[in-house]
Each structure stands twice: as structure tokens, then as C-alpha cells.
Amino acid sequence: MSMLSVSNLQVYYGAIHAVKGISFEVNEAEIVSLIGANGAGKSTTMNTIAGLIKPKSGTIKYKGEDITGVPAHKIVVKGLALCPEGRRVFTHLTVEENLEMGGYLRSNAENDETIERVFKDFPRLKERRSQVAGTLSGGEQQMLAMGRALMSHPSLLMLDEPSMGLAPILVDEIFEIIQNLNKQGTTILLVEQNAQMALSIADRGYVLEVGNIVLEGTGKELLNNNAVKSAYLGG
């Protein structure tokens, strides 16, 4: 069943045509990866789906409902959450306070229960629950940003460049967590420059180039595609 359906999405920044009529789907329980170089339109696509940017035209449907242009705070309520590029944690708040901010639309009792679930998925955060977020390592801040997004109980979690700036060992850890979240029932839309890692865990993937989808297929098909190997996998 299609959870997210994007159809002929057009997005501009002023005169710049950033996303040029792309269409793609994310089915329930899938991991779908969007890969491409810097400036391909990946983050713009995510931010538009999340309600942070209004598209020029096209439609975005979530669970069959048209959410095109719906404000971000209303989209979160519907069960769709974005973990943004660059982590953007609240550096002067503690780990626990950051998580509480992610659950601002829910009751205190619901948040308490969800925080414990997040701590189960991210045991390192539990160890640092009273630590100020700005003093965490890059990997821990990424875990916190993901945990904060999970506080709204999303059915679809969008992750924008979760491995950015992380050491290889931490990249492996983050991707293992992504797979575990998916196994627990969370559908994942993943934007990632590390194409090898993104496609290796993806059910399906799409390749974006300067605002257009130029290739699509299963993760395995794209990993074995010569054009993808040449452009993104160093092969």
C-alpha cells in the first residue's frame, strides 16, 4: 500500500527551478532512498513534503490524503516527521528536554512513555539524558535528532543526510538503527549522499540529478547499475 505519493512536484527558489516535476512513491514498511549529488534537489523535496516549503505545483498525498502545502505543524500531527539535515538539536537544552520538544503535541504521560521507548532504541542517549545537547558528539547529536523526530510517533520518518560528518564506525551504527526502526514498523524515506550505504539498506531507490529523477529501481538494482556505480559509488 502506498503511504506517500508525490506526483509532478515542481519547486522554485525565486527564479531557480530546484525540483522539476518529480514523481515517486513510498509504500508502507519500506525503506526508500533518494540519492544524488549536492544541489540535486533531495533536501528541497524532503522539506516540501514536510510542509516547510510550498511547491509551485504538483501533489503530495500521505495515506491517500492530499497534504500539498499543508503547514509543517499539521503534517507532524498526521504522522509524518522529518529529521533535518545538520541535526539542529537545541544545543542549550538537555537530551531529555530536546526529546520533550519533539513531543510538544502530545500529553506528558504519552511523552514519558515514548521517551523510554527512544532510550531503548538509543541507549547512549539514556546515559546522557541530563547532558546538555551541545556537548554531545556528532554521532550522539544525530541520534538525538532522530529520537526527537520519533517522539511524535510517526508512521513515516524522513531522514535527511543522517550520516553527514560522521566517522565510518558511527555511520554503520546509525544505519543499523535505521534498519531496526524499520523492522519495528516505521516506514523510512532516506536522503543520503553515502549512496553505497543508502542503497544497501533500501527496498527501493531513486536517483535525482538537477531536480529530475533519472533512475529508479530496487536498492540492489541501483547498486549494480553501471551509471550509478560510476557517478556515486566510485566504480
Score class of each variant (00 low, 15 high):
residue 221 E to I: 00
residue 25 E to I: 00
residue 15 A to W: 06
residue 148 R to W: 09
residue 66 D to A: 05
residue 83 C to V: 02
residue 153 H to A: 08
residue 133 A to M: 12
residue 103 G to E: 11
residue 136 L to A: 04
residue 59 T to G: 00
residue 35 I to M: 11
residue 132 V to M: 14
residue 91 T to I: 13
residue 84 P to K: 04
residue 195 A to G: 07
residue 22 I to D: 00
residue 159 L to D: 03
residue 173 E to Q: 14
residue 233 L to H: 09
residue 90 F to K: 06
residue 117 R to Y: 13
residue 73 H to N: 15
residue 235 G to A: 13
residue 70 V to N: 10
residue 57 S to D: 11
residue 42 K to I: 07
residue 132 V to F: 08
residue 90 F to C: 10
residue 118 V to T: 07
residue 204 R to W: 01
residue 129 R to P: 04
residue 162 P to H: 05
residue 30 E to I: 01
residue 226 N to K: 11
residue 46 M to K: 00
residue 185 G to H: 13
residue 124 R to T: 06
residue 154 P to Q: 06
residue 197 M to W: 01
residue 29 A to T: 10
residue 112 D to L: 08
residue 180 N to T: 12
residue 62 Y to P: 03
residue 84 P to D: 11
residue 58 G to W: 12
residue 65 E to D: 13
residue 161 E to L: 01
residue 178 I to Y: 14
residue 167 A to F: 09
residue 206 Y to I: 00
residue 225 N to H: 09
residue 53 I to H: 13
residue 86 G to W: 10
residue 34 L to C: 04
residue 170 L to C: 06
residue 91 T to Q: 10
residue 81 A to H: 08
residue 216 E to V: 01
residue 227 A to M: 04
residue 83 C to H: 02
residue 105 L to W: 15
residue 51 G to L: 03
residue 213 I to G: 08
residue 111 N to M: 15
residue 172 D to T: 12
residue 166 L to S: 06
residue 63 K to R: 13
residue 108 N to K: 14
residue 86 G to I: 12
residue 146 M to K: 03
residue 174 I to D: 10
residue 54 K to R: 15
residue 105 L to G: 14
residue 74 K to P: 07
residue 158 M to F: 01
residue 100 E to A: 11
residue 2 S to R: 01
residue 81 A to F: 07
residue 210 V to Y: 11
residue 44 T to H: 06
residue 38 N to Q: 14
residue 43 S to K: 04
residue 79 G to N: 02
residue 173 E to M: 06
residue 93 L to D: 09
residue 63 K to I: 02
residue 151 M to Y: 12
residue 122 F to S: 09
residue 197 M to Q: 15
residue 26 V to Y: 08
residue 27 N to G: 11
residue 168 P to R: 10
residue 173 E to V: 11
residue 152 S to V: 01
residue 10 Q to N: 15
residue 54 K to A: 14
residue 230 S to R: 11
residue 80 L to K: 02
residue 188 I to R: 03
residue 86 G to H: 10
residue 168 P to G: 12
residue 43 S to V: 00
residue 99 L to T: 02
residue 41 G to Q: 03
residue 233 L to N: 10
residue 226 N to S: 12
residue 90 F to M: 10
residue 191 V to P: 02
residue 92 H to S: 14
residue 55 P to L: 06
residue 160 D to Q: 08
